[in-house]
Design a binder for these strands. Sequence first.
DNA 1: CGCAAGAACATTGTTGACAATCTTTCGGCG
DNA 2: CGCCGAAAGATTGTCAACAATGTTCTTGCG
Lengths: 234, 234
Amino acid sequence: MNQAHFPITAHGVEADEPRKSGAEAEERVMRLINDAIQQHRVQPGDRLVERELSAGAQANRQAVRNALARMAQAGLVNLTPNRGATVVQYSPETTRQIMHARIVNEGAALVALAGRLDDGGRDRLEGILRQEAAAYDEGRIIEGRHHSRAFHAAFTELAGNVMMSRFVSELIACQPLLGMRNSGRQSSFSGVIAHTRTLAALLRGDGHEAESVNTQLLLALEREFLRESTADPA
Amino acid sequence: MNQAHFPITAHGVEADEPRKSGAEAEERVMRLINDAIQQHRVQPGDRLVERELSAGAQANRQAVRNALARMAQAGLVNLTPNRGATVVQYSPETTRQIMHARIVNEGAALVALAGRLDDGGRDRLEGILRQEAAAYDEGRIIEGRHHSRAFHAAFTELAGNVMMSRFVSELIACQPLLGMRNSGRQSSFSGVIAHTRTLAALLRGDGHEAESVNTQLLLALEREFLRESTADPA
DNA sequence: CGCAAGAACATTGTTGACAATCTTTCGGCG
DNA sequence: CGCCGAAAGATTGTCAACAATGTTCTTGCG
């Protein structure tokens, strides 16, 4: 696979930061990799070399190692002994499984949340939705996607089940790796309309409608991902 | 909390094994802790000292560290900076959340599995169920519980969704920590009857009946856990 | 020219020592 | 007698050197 001539170097980073270690450095490494994935600067299959990450995130190698272990457990990275870490490459079947897991758990969250969404929660969801719509309107697709994921993560978290929230967050985190074969053209798929309908149903207290809308959205997303991965231009 | 005068030492272990490192040692450490939890040799809140685990599992300290990190991410262990690891202590609310997450995901697995359970899967579930029933009949409660968890893990795995299977496995893994306040008396709660009905419904292709039975079982288990944790004899 | 064996290189895995932090103990003071 | 504070001890966190493994390049042979 791709050899990782690393585009992973912080772009506008200030010179010689104190190279802090510990949990902070771990977070930095994970952010570095996640950002690189979301901005399509690394592709599934690319190797993630410890030394490069260490330099790129101003972190100790041990911190890099810990971060990679965590991301491997979260399913974002493939870690094979003595051969290091690579970005995972999801098969169509795994794509379907991820989306089904999301349908089930996000659906349960929406049903649980309907009717007991307080003002704070409503404001939060409306805020994210507004940012998402604005980003898509102005053509900032990647940022729009980010807000879209935040919307799903937010209503799941608001439902109050910590376990399911963590799980869904993990599933959402691997979304940038699902639709990735279309190197050139950016699919302009947007969930703004569905999100608006979901939020309206939530406020109305109609959990099943919210779940249904969300399920349809996720199924459409799944079709999009699978279409992208079969129509490989290379 | 309890100070961990460690009962964590392998009982019938042979002298001076080569103290292997790496993934193998990590597995050993996790087994050591899991066994200690399941056999009630450590309680929620107990500290897990790296040096003791290192000695008990014939493992390097780094391996212990990695194992603890993984178990922390899985939610079995609480890891606070500079103060080490403790066995997690679930609140009643978290107990409810865990059981609800299991209800949702195991239910989805049962619905997906119904009707397309092949002979191999049926044999596997029947085998586990037989072992479970035998263990309870002969009064080996802890082993019975083990097989019971294996049953839930097995039908979830057979459903074929790797993500949901991993998640449910994690949830099941923290079950020994839920019903734990009743130091002395062992609750003889058994899921054998419910499991039998679940399996029958599966073979019949009636996924919703299987889901319903399983949900009722998990709710009963939840009540059992909550009853145990409120009725504290100390 | 193709291919295989081996050396040179690159990368990951492991180990032990040291530093930072927390906990306990002991002594002094009010 | 109780309490505050400092030292001693225990435990975790960090680091860099070393070992083991994998990869690539070169070289010699068929």
